[in-house]
Design a protein around this nucleic acid. Sequence first.
DNA 1: GTCTATAGAAGGATAGAC
DNA 2: GTCTATCCTTCTATAGAC
Lengths: 203, 203
Amino acid sequence: MVEREKLTEEKIFESATEIFLEKGMDGARMRDIADHAGINKSLLNYYYRSKDRLFNAVYEKLAGQLFDMFAPVFDENLSLEEKIRYFFREHISFLQKNPRLPIFILYEVNRNPERFRKLIQKFDFEALWDTLEKQHEKELAKYNISMEMLPQLMSSLAALSVFPFAARSFLEAIFTKLGIDFDDYIEERKKFAAEFTIKALKR
Amino acid sequence: MVEREKLTEEKIFESATEIFLEKGMDGARMRDIADHAGINKSLLNYYYRSKDRLFNAVYEKLAGQLFDMFAPVFDENLSLEEKIRYFFREHISFLQKNPRLPIFILYEVNRNPERFRKLIQKFDFEALWDTLEKQHEKELAKYNISMEMLPQLMSSLAALSVFPFAARSFLEAIFTKLGIDFDDYIEERKKFAAEFTIKALKR
DNA sequence: GTCTATAGAAGGATAGAC
DNA sequence: GTCTATCCTTCTATAGAC
């Protein structure tokens, strides 16, 4: 029955996503995934052949989601300042819905850099770079941003939005002692990070 | 023989640090640690009783190192701007020597937040907060930094210096395709992050 | 397609000789 | 204090019935 098959396979995939996000490849157990999906352990192997293949399916899906989040930044017809505001608002909103994605990706890429290299082989970063340069040629000149600064600038944007989620448990432990609510902090962050960055660029 | 005992115990601890940093608690094997130390597997249990205790010893040592890095920021008699430059220079230099520390701590705190809470129980963050406030009362007013902004600001400082290391493999994979050298990028970062932050604060 | 049962390997921990 | 040998548990993966 095709309907039933799809349901089971999807249930497995969703449960695997859940468990791998929570425990990572090394910490996750096939038993946990099967129990979470409410099915028999051997069905995991029936559909995905091995833990490694199941993990790769989840990993590639999640890494893909992460990259899809950056695409609109290159599409939108906005000024540089508007684009910065747009980026933090949308990116942090996305991470609010997927708070465990950053630490998962960072850790698993670290654990197996070669797999990540293969995954991004097809991406043409040079072209994106050029697009960005052409879109904002005048603004980059106005703000006195040289091409050599772009890696520093782009990684800073990522840092300001991603770090709070990657360091979530760390920050929460400290925030609790200071009476700060993490969710409020994140909500504020959309505007803070944008204004912080824009001010840093102005001269 | 006390001398010999100390040597073996230290060798175990150093090897454990090495292996846990590289593979994490879940990915590390007692066998790996024993092999790395060039000793018998059962000696690990003789000295540390269990993998869990050995890991905790390493974890607490490394987490301690991380917190020690922040202490000078509160001690040094510097202006706010000088302190920001000092922080990025010293903190990033420290991470250059301990590049795998950030992702290890972030991941392991995430895996077991409760253990981290217990570890920082003794720290009086309120007092540090107040110290910082008093030290820079006039400057905070001058830059129009309210106390409500401090969590955003402090976490941004951490983000700008820690993220490149936590995301090292991720960034390296992309940088390679763009012909950028990661070590050069990090070296530049000490100044970039400082100037970026200082500009963001000026009004 | 889904289940039970189990193989086969790996990992952490311990007993006991030296 | 250090080694060899081994126990016991856990985990992934597969065989085979239904």
